[in-house]
């Protein structure tokens, strides 16, 4: 059973682990990578115990984010010309 449902906004990006993390009651961190989110994975696991959480997120946000060739991601910002 999933320990909890956690929104992606409540998770913290960990630069060392290169993963989104959330505190696990065992003292370690639930972790999920951008790559996992991109393919629709919604389970963030704790490496130290048997618990896991369900991550609430919009998969499209990460598909765009991680695909630089996707034109939708690189919407040109209007350039202000004086």
């Amino acid at each position: 059973m999933s320990y909890d449902d956690v929104e992606i906004e409540d998770m913290e990006w960990n630069e060392e682990l290169l993963a989104y993390t959330y505190p696990c009651p065992c003292g370690d961190l639930f972790q999920i990578t951008k790559e996992e989110l991109k393919i629709g994975e919604e389970i963030a696991r704790c490496p130290s115990c048997s618990l896991y959480i369900t991550v609430i997120y919009n998969m499209e946000d990460f598909m765009r984010d991680s695909n630089p060739n996707n034109k939708n991601n690189n919407l040109q910002q209007p350039i202000a010309v004086s």
């Binding site: 059973m1 009651p25 065992c26 003292g27 115990c49 048997s50 618990l51």
Partner: peptide, 12 residues
């Protein structure tokens, strides 16, 4: 009990 399995005490 967590998921029928005893895990190490969460916080010490």
């Amino acid at each position: 009990l967590l998921q029928r399995k005893l895990i190490p005490s969460s916080e010490l």
